[in-house]
Structures are given as structure tokens and as C-alpha cells.
Design a protein around this nucleic acid. Structure first.
Lengths: 195, 195
DNA sequence: GACAATGTGTTGCCTAAGCAACTTTTAACT
DNA sequence: AGTTAAAAGTTGCTTAGGCAACACATTGTC
């Protein structure tokens, strides 16, 4: 039951997600109760459970959606893992993490972990899907492609996260200059003469 | 059917009114269809009719609510028709008319008439209810009080509307200086030495 | 004036949402 | 440890909202 096409369902889910995002901006994740969410969304508490298992599932979906909406067309449609695409992914990841940590109170350990995992997974998936479009020649079998994607995603994510502790957080060109050569060399795709 | 207490009903009515106010800001009243409203409110067209007879009834309610929310506490609780209260009513009426004509496209004759009538009626009612609280001594019987209220409301409204065509629309002190003495004298309540 | 196209209301059937009244966790206090 | 309170989930029944399909009015255009 609960037909995902029903306009009432779409509206209710929008209301819940909007309420949640709003609450995250002024309360810690752990401090937010289902009752809070239901109240702000002007829905019944029981209705919440018809749509989400719990607030973790909600967080998962909100995170996914936010990241997804952030992906530029260029990256989503990319058929080849070029320098430009690589740069975009690095910047997007960095921007996303920054946004999240700035607008939400990441007081909750559980939340930070969940969000991190989610983003990493999406990043990885995005990269893998570009690799699989096949224009870029890497290892032959899907297995090695998966591993390459995993490494690339993890590297980008790790670097972006690490950059949070750097003095010049906003000097993203510094980040890009470090990560791109590393990744592209690792993949054996580096072109520019340097290094 | 349709219990006005049901949270779904409250929410739906809010959505409809918000959608309508929004549409009024960019479309003429006549150009707005029920379909437009339903779409923007993310409800079904049939649901609209469960709450409002037509868009005229909706306009009526939106107008009433907007005017009502504009009434200062001081005026709502007034037990006597003083100079200050009189001034407040004049300014409020002027402000309301100005707002309405500025934010909405008053292209429709029917709409302008309806809104005008509505505001006048509410203004009149507000004044009457102050008179009836009785601290102000006017004629004895309710009948004459009603007439006094009607005259006062009409005078204030007429003046405020007329002021729209004056060069210095925003010089509201000019408006007040003309209307207050007129009304207070008419009611036999004027105190200040002047005139 | 015939025609299509679009908006207005209405109706019956189905589904999502609200509610009350539970049980079960979880957490805080003493 | 024992008590209490608040939050988390669950369930059966009721009601508002969505939809399709209708009849009817309005408009424009050929």
C-alpha cells in the first residue's frame, strides 16, 4: 500500500522532507523527534510511519536527494572520465560536505556517519556509472572497474573531507590541484605534461 | 461533511489560500482558473469545491482574513472610540487598500467591487463593535449606533480610497488630519481645542 | 452557425491521512 | 533496582482527498 504516484503521497513526502530539513537547521539530529517532524509537516505522527521507517531512513533520503540535485548535467551525462568531470566531482563533493556541516548541526555522531557513508556511496556510484559507459579505457572486466571506482570515490571524498581542516577551506583550487593529478594518474588517464 | 477542525481540512484551506494569494500577484483575478489554484495548491480540483463555492467565495475569505490580521490589538480591544483608535483605523484602511491595489492586479471590475464591499463591511463592523462596548456615549438605541457606525466606516473608507488619487499618497498624516476631525466632530466626540 | 477547446461544477468509488488507544523502548531521576 | 515520563511504533476504524467520467456553459475560430 501507499502508491508512490498518488499526489497526496508526493505532497506528504515533500512536507515531511521540508519539515525535516528545516528542523535540522535549528536542532541537532538526535534532538529531533518524530513528533516534531509531524507537527511541522502538519501531518499525523502515524502518517510519518507510512512513509519512512524512522528518522534515519528519512535522513538517508534527504541526503540522497540533496546530493542528487547537486550533480551538474555535464557530470550526469558524461561518457568519459575527463579532467573536467573529475574537477566537477571534487568540487561538488567538497561543496556538499561544507554545506551540510555548515547548515546542520552535526552534533550527532550517528548522523555524521550516516551522511558520510551515503555521500561516499553516491559519489562512488556516479563514478562507476561513468566508467561503465565505457568510453574511458580501463581494465577490461567489470570487477576491476568497480574497484577503480571505489578507490576514486573514496580518494575524492577523503580529500574533500580532509580539506575541512585546512586553513584555506575556500581555496578549492588548491584541493583540486592535489586531487586531480593523483586520481587521474592512478587511473592512468593523465594527459597534461606535468608530473 | 468536511469538519473544519480536521487538520487535513485546515492544511488544505491554507494551501488553497496561499496558492490564490500567490497567483493574484502575477495574474489578473479573471484570468485565474480553479485548475490553476488546484495545481498550485497541489490538491485536486474537486477538493477545491469541497471547501469553497467558487473563486469569489475564496476571494471573500482571503480578503477578510488579510484585513482581520491587520487589525492591531489596540483597536480590536478598544472599549472607546478615541482619537488614537480613529487614527489607527484610518491608517489601516489606507494601508490595506494601497497594499491590495499594489500587489494585485485589479484588472477585474468584479474583483475590485467585491474587495471594496468586503473591506467596507469589515471596517463598519469593527467600528460598530467598539461603539457597542458602550464606553463612548452616543445615541441611546442600537439603531442610531448602527447608523453612526455605518457613516463613520463609509467616511473613512471613502476618504482612504479618494486619497489614492492624491499626489502625495504616502503623506498619510495629511489624510488623518482631514478625516479625524471630520469623523470625531460628526460623532460629537472631538476634544482638542482646534476647530 | 457549427466546431473544437477549455473551464465549471457534480458524483461515486477508492485510497491516503487522522485519531484514539494501545504496547514497547528509551531515558532520567532517586 | 524501581518508578515515572516521554518518545517510538502499531492497529482498526473514520473521514478527507484523488480520480475518472460526466453534463453543462463559455469562448474563439473557420
Amino acid at each position: 500500500m501507499v502508491n508512490q504516484e498518488d499526489p497526496r503521497v508526493l505532497r506528504t513526502r515533500q512536507l515531511i522532507k521540508a519539515a525535516f530539513r528545516d528542523l535540522l537547521r535549528r536542532k541537532g539530529f538526535d534532538a529531533i523527534t518524530i513528533k516534531d517532524i509531524a507537527q511541522k509537516a502538519t501531518i499525523n505522527r502515524a502518517t510519518f510511519y507510512a512513509h519512512f521507517e524512522d528518522k534515519y531512513a528519512l535522513l538517508d533520503e534527504v541526503t540522497e536527494q540533496a546530493f542528487h540535485e547537486m550533480i551538474p548535467e555535464q557530470v550526469a551525462n558524461a561518457r568519459e572520465f575527463t579532467d573536467e568531470i573529475c574537477d566537477q566531482l571534487i568540487l561538488q563533493t567538497h561543496r556538499y560536505i561544507l554545506d551540510f556541516y555548515q547548515t546542520c548541526r552535526m552534533d550527532s555522531k550517528s548522523m555524521a556517519t550516516l551522511v558520510d557513508e551515503k555521500i561516499k556511496k553516491m559519489l562512488l556510484h556516479t563514478i562507476e556509472s561513468i566508467f561503465l559507459k565505457g568510453a574511458t579505457h580501463l581494465g577490461v572486466n567489470r570487477h576491476s572497474i568497480k574497484v577503480m571506482a571505489a578507490m576514486t570515490g573514496s580518494a575524492i571524498y577523503g580529500a574533500a573531507q580532509c580539506w575541512l581542516n585546512v586553513e584555506e577551506i575556500d581555496r578549492t583550487d588548491g584541493l583540486v590541484d592535489i586531487v586531480r593529478p593523483y586520481v587521474m594518474n592512478g587511473l592512468g588517464l593523465y594527459r597534461d605534461g606535468d608530473k
